[in-house]
Amino acid sequence: MNDLREYFDEIADSVTSTATTDVEADVTRGRRAVRQRRTVQTVAGSVFGIAALVAAFTIPSAGVGSGPFGPTAAAPPAISSALDLVAYQGAQPKGFTVDKVPAGWFIQADNNYNLLLAPKGAGSAAPNADPNANPSADPRLDPASAVGKIAIFLESKDQNGPARDGIEVKVGDRDGVLLKSLPAMIPGQTPAPADSDTGWEMWVEQPSGVYLIVQFWEGLGLSQKQMVELTAGVHVEKDAVQSVG
């Protein structure tokens, strides 16, 4: 066994021990995807009409999202009452600094690779947090989880800008692209409908050519203007590092 093909065979063979033959599970997943697509189309057609559909929806250019899940809503709410942005008053983190955060939020985790903003009450650094709380029981308590939070980081070393078309926005003096996150596909869990709030990602190219990404988890209720405003206040410091993978 001393050539590449044999090693490839060995890696490919490694899945045979865990391979599932549950054909019905694939049929069920397929039915569910088709049902979701029909729901999206029905709702879109009845509520917005064709003109509004063209204006408000885009079809991803590639990837899973362009196939079974059909069109995805591409417009964030114009007005939000869920969160207000306020000037950040605390100690500045390492790889990234921030001018503004949502009112009542704090920096839950930071290092040279990422920065995590979370609502108070989440995580060990939060005021009034239960020191005995189990992070695995609530993702908000887990400083390694972005669920319900805002994550700031650079694109991975194997990425090269946004993969899909999005809303072109001006972020400070830079050009940015706001992408609607694709529905997560987590084994054992039903993907969220593509027309629901699946969260947003703001991509802003830095002078180095590397993109800054600010990921807004679904359900935060931030308007497009607020996402732009928050991102404009994010500064990539010299110690910021791209992750791998």
Binding site: A62, G63, Y113, S156, Q215
Partner: peptide, 22 residues
């Protein structure tokens, strides 16, 4: 391949912590 690229761009979806090295 599209699924792979899409998966890798779904940043933080799996509650993963980015690391410097694999």
């Amino acid at each position: 391949v599209n699924a792979l690229i899409d998966e890798r761009r779904r940043v933080w979806r799996r509650r993963e912590q980015p690391v410097a090295e694999l």
